[in-house]
Design a protein around this nucleic acid. Sequence first.
DNA 1: ACGGTTTTTGACCAATTGGACAGGAAAATG
DNA 2: CATTTTCCTGTCCAATTGGTCAAAAACCGT
Lengths: 208, 208
Amino acid sequence: MTDQSPPRKQTRIQREKREVILNAALEVFSVHGLRGATLEKIAAAAEMSKPHVVYYFGSKDAIYKGLLESQLETWLRPLRELSAEGDPLAEILTYIRRKLRMSQEMPRESKLFATEILHGAPRTRDALSGELKDLVDEKAAVIARWSDEGKLAKLDPHHLIFSIWAMTQHYADFDVQVRAVLNGKDSNTLFDEADAYLTDLFIRALRP
Amino acid sequence: MTDQSPPRKQTRIQREKREVILNAALEVFSVHGLRGATLEKIAAAAEMSKPHVVYYFGSKDAIYKGLLESQLETWLRPLRELSAEGDPLAEILTYIRRKLRMSQEMPRESKLFATEILHGAPRTRDALSGELKDLVDEKAAVIARWSDEGKLAKLDPHHLIFSIWAMTQHYADFDVQVRAVLNGKDSNTLFDEADAYLTDLFIRALRP
DNA sequence: ACGGTTTTTGACCAATTGGACAGGAAAATG
DNA sequence: CATTTTCCTGTCCAATTGGTCAAAAACCGT
């Protein structure tokens, strides 16, 4: 028995095509949302025929779910990397910077999740109250300990995390609005400003 | 000429019906988004027939636009009420509290705007770079003056406003996520916590 | 009570769209 | 090569859905 993979080995071409489709779908879903996206648009973006897309994923919904799943881990990584060992303030500032950079570099993923959650997270509920909650609780406990030890100001750690999510993702999800107000600023300047602002804000707020 | 209204006087029944439809539409749009909402669902929520809804608004799109327009002013009011005359820190904290309360009391409106902007604000672009930008610039100038006078910490006023939007609306727009993490907390407790946290955060950050 | 206007709806239509299907092209397999 | 398996697409279909239309019902001024 040389075949060690449990259900079925995926061929190279299968992996590649699925990858292409997921990327095209991300493009389309992030702009139009689940309902606004059509198989046709996805197929066009992936440069293949509509039945071909269905051939690989079975249904539009399956693509959408596939996308969410394939991105969830990436999405949580910055928080996961927040280490209990490091310097409290530095750890949190690094987390903020990582999250902000992620928003800058992966705005499509950010919008995908935002839309999903905004609409009640019908396909992600379990992950939210399972994996996500566990991770947040764990890191919130770390932050709470830091506060107790006097290394950080006493601020509700859960809400601290929420506010970091809110602010960093704001720049990706509502970029149209931000850009309309700060009209003419290019993306890099904008994120540099945001970085400086958030660093400043949280240094002032978190210092013991 | 007793009729003084420019184009046409709207009858009582017309105003009422339009009101009912807008309210039903808000319910449906805020949950499903523009594309996910159907005339049928709106009609059902308004307890009338589909052609009746069309009779009053002409098209689904017109209802959507009507909603956005009828809510925009309400949405901007808290910022508009931020007064250059008051005590700087108190004014900003009051603004935050108003905005947060608004998110709590009008989550449907919040989600409506969030979805619209998330999808590129195709129907709101002008308002964003016109009315909204002007208002923000005006209030940002006020805040900048306060900072210059040493009454407030020096923080980029535009980004300060963005961060307030981001955090307050987060609790309305992503309530599913917040609730999944803080599982079991009822709405009032949650918003009270948020209020306490945000007040605390911004007092620490804004004190000169 | 009556004629006209406004309101309301059932029935219908055309466009869109998710997806099925049959069969051809290409690749792997032997 | 022959055959089997995988890949790929043109064509079609049924469901959904935004919107029309004609006609009925309710309303209103006189």
